[in-house]
């Protein structure tokens, strides 16, 4: 992402050229990358705290899913699990999927924040500020990732209260947070792409929701793969959500739960984690690259 701005290299050269001090500024300009990052990180965190609806909003639906699904389908689902997943409760089975759902919902907020900034004129305003463009965007994304981590932690705690159990312990729970971050990035990128392309808040929200819901249902999120019709099994194989959910679930249950791709060379949960993380990383890089390209174009001064 370091190539978001073409300006920085130019600036460095220019600053060196002016090292004679003739044009040294009285007010310290040339903030460091880190301070530019920090300014934006603080701003986006403040915005999140100011707007509790965003924080709570992306938690409400997953919590409703967690409570309702376990209460309504708990009995049936637990027996449906009997075959593949061993003797585990539906709470334990569902919790990692809900954690990934939270990650998706929170990631959708990234594009919404960007498009809101564009509509409020803040996007252009920050472009006129002497900041590193990469630092600006990384600061924003870091604030969003922090929010995602907090929200997943809340969901895991809630799950524990409802009787779910992380078989791999505290380290495993940290691992689920890590998978959550990795899993959120492709959707962060996708929602930003939608924001830049549509430049419209409603389209960005609707786009994210339209994708999110069907994708959740045609994955291994709510039921094991073998309990679903053949066509869904096929779709689930190509659905990114399956890989996030399977990785989180492997950590939750301490089992190799992945059935869409059978890997046996790493042993234990690594047979799930390695392919899942590989798929997520590839997806993050591909969509992240597209996002950086579009963002770069949107913030460029080149005439369009």
């Amino acid at each position: 992402m370091s190539d978001i701005s073409e300006d920085e290299t130019v600036n460095e050269t220019a600053q060196e050229a002016r090292a004679d001090g003739e044009h040294a500024r009285a007010t310290p300009s040339g903030n460091s990358f880190l301070s530019d990052f920090w300014v934006n990180f603080v701003r986006w965190n403040l915005k999140a705290v100011r707007n509790p609806f965003v924080v709570v909003g992306s938690l409400v639906q997953p919590i409703i899913f967690l409570v309702l699904f376990t209460q309504v389908f708990g009995q049936i689902a637990t027996s449906a699990l009997g075959g593949g997943a061993g003797d585990i409760t539906y709470e334990t089975f569902l919790l990692p999927a809900i954690a990934m759902q939270v990650s998706l919902a929170a990631a959708a907020g990234s594009g919404i924040g960007l498009v809101n900034d564009m509509e409020e004129g803040m996007f252009e305003k920050t472009l006129v500020m002497p900041m590193s463009r990469s630092a600006m965007f990384l600061g924003k994304t870091a604030a969003e990732i922090l929010r995602i981590v907090v929200q997943i932690a809340i969901i895991l705690a809630l799950g524990a209260v409802l009787g779910a159990n992380v078989a791999t312990g505290f380290l495993g729970a940290l691992g689920i947070l890590g998978v959550g971050i990795l899993f959120s990035l492709w959707f962060v990128a996708l929602s930003n792409i939608m924001a830049i392309v549509t430049r419209d808040q409603e389209s960005t929200i609707i786009g994210a929701n339209l994708l999110q819901f069907p994708l959740l249902f045609v994955s291994t999120a709510f039921l094991p793969l073998n309990a679903m019709p053949d066509w869904i099994q096929v779709v689930a194989t190509y659905n990114p959500i399956t890989y996030g959910v399977d990785a989180a679930r492997a950590l939750m249950l301490d089992q190799d739960v992945m059935t869409v791709v059978e890997v046996t060379r790493f042993g234990g949960i690594w047979d799930t984690l390695v392919p899942a993380i590989a798929v997520l990383l590839a997806l993050d890089l591909a969509l992240g690259g597209a996002m950086v390209y579009l963002l770069n174009r949107a913030s460029s001064s080149a005439v369009q």
Binding site: D7, A14, G30, K47, R50, E124
Partner: peptide, 21 residues
């Protein structure tokens, strides 16, 4: 461009403030 940005203030036609701050 960055040196220019450091030495100018810019007020756009559309009011640009962060309403949540």
């Amino acid at each position: 461009p960055r040196r220019v940005r450091e030495t100018i203030g810019y007020m756009a036609q559309e009011t640009s403030v962060d309403e949540e701050l």
